[in-house]
Design a protein around this nucleic acid. Structure first.
Length: 271
DNA sequence: AAGCTGTCCTGAAAGC
DNA sequence: TGCTTTCAGGACAGCT
């Protein structure tokens, strides 16, 4: 499932190639998570200025607004001069002078939303509540600790909420907590400064490593077949229930937190 | 305000 | 073998 590293790799794979292109047509498939918000024809004639990213949203900057693209959990993008006819799971297409951008999303948790330049409220609604970017300078260990001290919920769920730091999904939350030696059920406000600093470093390291791996395994994520693109994850705890911890050989345990699976090592993550 | 729960969707895997 | 059930995931609405 696309988490921050996959989204960033996707962005890099087509941002330069689509920049400057003029939209010739836009097509919708079955409904996605949210409606597009405008008639597809409203995009025709606009040029693509750039492709940025905020959290797990891709921000396609157009002449008169932004296209916010979210890959949900099963979405992927392709951008190529030409593509085969759309299949039953291709739910958005942007035909441009430089190629065809296509969203393939079998489970339709993804979304493409057009936010006109003037609709500031809509932009705030979609992006306003997001936390800091974990791979940018604003993600600071001291401020991270201060933010955690305001929260009584289990640290795993606080990370997932995304309002302190974005981009840490279910997989990387478990992985980062293992790396920092913190039990996922620990109340966020009970984590000391030094331990928060360790978690901060673990989040950065886990995401950066995934991004580096993605750079090699996902080089043609967008332009190629779209099937083999997902990360081949080599995890320490995620999806390893009952298997021996790679550090101490204790059996990895799984629990449910907020209807989501959490994995941890009971020995390496004692508290 | 913060923190719960339910909801959306569909393919894969497990269970009967 | 074939049918039914469960599970996975991100993020929001609507509660308490």
């Amino acid at each position: 499932m696309p988490e921050l590293p996959e989204v960033e790799v996707t962005r890099r794979s087509f941002a330069d190639r689509i920049a400057g292109a003029t939209v010739r047509a836009a097509r919708l498939g079955k409904p996605l998570r949210w409606p597009l918000g405008v008639a597809p024809e409203a995009l025709v004639g606009q040029r693509v200025r750039s492709v940025g990213r905020r959290g797990k949203y891709l921000l396609v900057e157009m002449d008169r607004g932004w296209l916010l693209v979210h890959l949900g959990m099963s979405g992927s993008l392709q951008f190529a001069p030409a593509l085969p006819p759309p299949g039953p799971h291709d739910h958005f297409e942007l035909d441009t002078s430089q190629g065809l951008l296509r969203l393939h999303d079998p489970r339709r948790f993804g979304a493409v939303v057009c936010v006109p330049s003037l609709d500031h409220a809509r932009a705030v609604q979609l992006l306003g509540g997001l936390g800091v970017e974990p791979l940018e300078a604003g993600f600071d260990p001291v401020r991270f600790h201060q933010a955690l001290r305001q929260r009584r919920a289990p640290i795993k769920q606080v990370l997932l909420a995304g309002d302190i730091v974005v981009g840490v999904g279910n997989i990387y939350a478990s992985e980062a907590l293992f790396s920092a030696g913190i039990r996922p059920t620990t109340r966020a406000d009970r984590i000391s400064g030094p331990r928060a600093a360790r978690l901060h470093a673990a989040i950065v390291q886990v995401l950066q490593r995934a991004l580096a791996v993605g750079g090699s395994t996902l080089r043609d994520f967008v332009s190629a077949d779209g099937q083999s693109g997902y990360f081949q994850l080599d995890t320490m705890v995620y999806d390893r229930a009952g298997q021996p911890c790679r550090r101490c050989a204790t059996a990895i345990r799984t629990i449910r937190q907020g209807q989501r699976s959490t994995y941890f090592c009971p020995l390496c993550q004692a508290r």
